[in-house]
Design a protein around this nucleic acid. Sequence first.
DNA 1: ATGAGCTATCGAATATCATTATATCTGGTC
DNA 2: GACCAGATATAATGATATTCGATAGCTCAT
Lengths: 311, 311
Amino acid sequence: MELSQLRTLIHVAELGSLSKAADRLHIAQPALSRQVRMLEEELGFALFLRHGRGMVLSEQGKEVLTHAMRVMAEIDEIRATATPADAPLTGEVAIGLPPTVADIISLPLAAAFGKAHPKAKLRLVSAYTGYLLDWMHRGEVDVAVLYDPRMARSLRSRPLLLENLFLIGPPDAGFSTVRAVSFASLAGKRLLLPSIKHGLRIIVERCATDAGITLDVGIEADSYSALKDLVRNGHGWTILPLAPIHADVTAGLLTAAPLIDPVPVRRLILAYPADRPASRLARFAGQAIEDVVKDLVGRAVWVGQLLGPPP
Amino acid sequence: MELSQLRTLIHVAELGSLSKAADRLHIAQPALSRQVRMLEEELGFALFLRHGRGMVLSEQGKEVLTHAMRVMAEIDEIRATATPADAPLTGEVAIGLPPTVADIISLPLAAAFGKAHPKAKLRLVSAYTGYLLDWMHRGEVDVAVLYDPRMARSLRSRPLLLENLFLIGPPDAGFSTVRAVSFASLAGKRLLLPSIKHGLRIIVERCATDAGITLDVGIEADSYSALKDLVRNGHGWTILPLAPIHADVTAGLLTAAPLIDPVPVRRLILAYPADRPASRLARFAGQAIEDVVKDLVGRAVWVGQLLGPPP
DNA sequence: ATGAGCTATCGAATATCATTATATCTGGTC
DNA sequence: GACCAGATATAATGATATTCGATAGCTCAT
């Protein structure tokens, strides 16, 4: 088995054609034909199914492909060993972020990448934790911030932040971040919250139960920018982390107050896929996220308790 | 970069000598010299430090080595793709087990391997969770059963079993597995327990606190076979999972009773290293362990609650 | 039916790699 | 301090593999 054969496999599988792959790799097509054939002979089964217009991976071929891609990732790591740890890297990394988190850290994160690895291609994927989990397993996302799914069995994760949730109202509600509001006082107040499918809603409902009240939810909105707009226009209050609406608060468009008795908190984790080692860029991304979060918490833009990993 | 170069790197690094590696690989020494040199030229740094009696890895070389080994593991997986999922595999796998667990599952585990993969080399490593964690990180263990360390950040783990701990006494204590004993009734009784460093002792102490009593620990013994012998000879009672002493109980050498109020339980997890994908053999080992545990619990040899992973 | 587009095969040219023989280096020993 | 043993590096050579261009054979779409 040769590395060139694996590389050929990867490109042919992607392009679905020997000739196209030959074109891309700048080597003649018969060479690729031979490489594929030899690999198939060595393994004893067909990697591709030929059909007059090209070739597609067989089932076993798909499995081999995943391993081949891992091999190439390792080879890249070996090449990267040459360069010092903080040298600019190239390549791609996909970072998954929940929408509320993306809003607040996308900018500083991109800045950190621009400074440290200007040639690296950054893909910021904003989606709900459920989707992110799925994409992570499928290898389309390399690192992600998740709301603790408590079933991180196929993930490698480290705790990131225990973020406090704030009561958000329009300016005339007169909330202040230094004057806490008890959860019980929400009884009877009209609230705007995401639907029960959201982790955030579940947390809020549990707090309501603990406080011995039931919530009066006027409107359910899953989009949090919709929530913001509705609150700003006086349709009620909502409960969100402070970070993504911090700018609105300082601009006087919204007001926010800490909640207590109980304090609603949401646990954020930083997760890597467990079925393959994280690339250098992915590790850098994770570190950068931690740094950004630390900075935001230090500047009280994001309110919560930093969770370092156990030493 | 070629696979042969990486294989050479691995063997030379292990043997510390080009000539010895040449001997083992059945190729001439200059060939290896050339391969190493070419790899070094491609990477642009020294993989080995030459010193008249051989060569040792440089710091960067060590890092490259870990990647090279992963590459080889992936190549092995590709080769294994050829054979159907349940075909006999070859190779090696190291399984880490806490002593009490090793005692009860080593035999059926070895039997399962003998039947399914007779040519595979099995290494059963029996040690405390702390050591197993360490060895797992260093790549010397491929799968392990652990007492939940609750800090499995660099592990991929799945819950295995919530095992109940039993009160163990000599035959004349007259315990029965169908007659529960309350924790509170242990007050004033002479107990033999492992030292506080052990997870088991911590659990027992917490239960004692919950039950509002303090334990009278006569002898501390970390070796659990020593514990068994001491109990058998009337030096006191101890608290252990049922499984490893099940044979003694059926043989009438010891008696055991379930404890309640509270029920002391220990959480077992099945863990794989997270920094590299598990090999087929490792996955088989994990599956075999789950099967064995399931069987033992079904036959009431091991008393506890099976913890399937969430679907 | 026919042509476009693809893969498989063949032989010659080329490049690559392993081998043998030998030179060079290093570290310990007398 | 010179020598020797054991190890790595180098050179020349021959065997082996790989690539390339040309071409045959196949499949699908028009």
